[in-house]
Amino acid sequence: MRRKAGLVLLALAVFFAALSPLLRWYAFPRLAKIPANQYQDMVLEAKDATLLDYGTMKARKVPEVTIVQTLKGNVEESEKIEKTAGRDVVVWDGLSYVVGPDGKMVSKIPERYIFDAHTQEPVHATGEMVDGDPVKRQGIEFKWPFLTEKRDYEYFDAQARVTAPIHYKGTQNFRGVDVYYFEQTIPWTKVRFPKTMPVEGITPESVAKTGTTRWYTTVRKFWVEPLTGAPVYGEEIHKEELRGGTLLGGREKVTAFAGHVKMREDYIDSTVALVKSNRTLVLLMTSYLPWGFLALALVLLSLSLYLEARGRRPGDPRPTKDAEPEPVNA
């Protein structure tokens, strides 16, 4: 009976010892993924911003410009692309909707971002676009990979439609969460006018005829929780100018938008809470369970060896027989 229990304990010890590395290096990379049906919205604000008044074509100070960003997982499209890509794919249909202080639309830019659900590497398929223009992204956008490393990443800028490095600048603590701070600078770059302009009757084509061009620069800052790869906070020092052409009435340039864009306070709180709970799940798979299983395996193995050793020892002391006296040589 004791030997049977010892064997069962040995089997359990091997079970947990095997489960420990399997969970960390086999199951985690396959199970950790962005759900295809995720829906998330984010509100960012630029207080005391500068905004172009398209009526007078003059820049003016405004108390606030709000950016509403929505990302919606398109399950049907992701399943369609998965068939040819042969891997788990997420399709995010996004919209950046900018609202002025009067509540009116300043700009709206839709985009479709297609990426690997596990690694966040971009996947190229028909439909990938920014503001209706087909693009071929390189690098990441919106989210970092699980188990983010302390290194520079390539990050896609949807305005300029270029990929540039986003530099790791150190580890910080943001509201109780250890985060990696990343920063990217996009120098002044000529960019396209949005397809939807804030004034009726003005189109990108009609502006282009005037010879006026749109330029943009930004300093993008992200505080990323490294286990989940999720940004818990973001800021952008964003500037846009219109340059040259007849539209500016002889002026060389005019500011179209300038502001320090920050996440709205209530969204920071909800993002931090969400990331904290997801972080626990990742820790469970990468640390708590593997180490716990390994410790359990050692305990079970020790118990099994102990039972085995006791099973081999004689239970009761046998009665000692008087030994026959051996012949002694003289």
């Binding site: 049906n37 919205d41 509403v68 929505t70 919606k72 399950v75 909707y97 609202v99």
Partner: peptide, 20 residues
């Protein structure tokens, strides 16, 4: 694995939400 679920019926926002 985990089920993919369904695309959310919620729209892409064109108004400023009051709270998350």
């Amino acid at each position: 694995g985990s089920p993919a679920g369904e695309t959310s019926p919620k729209p892409l926002l064109t108004t400023v939400p009051a709270h998350p």
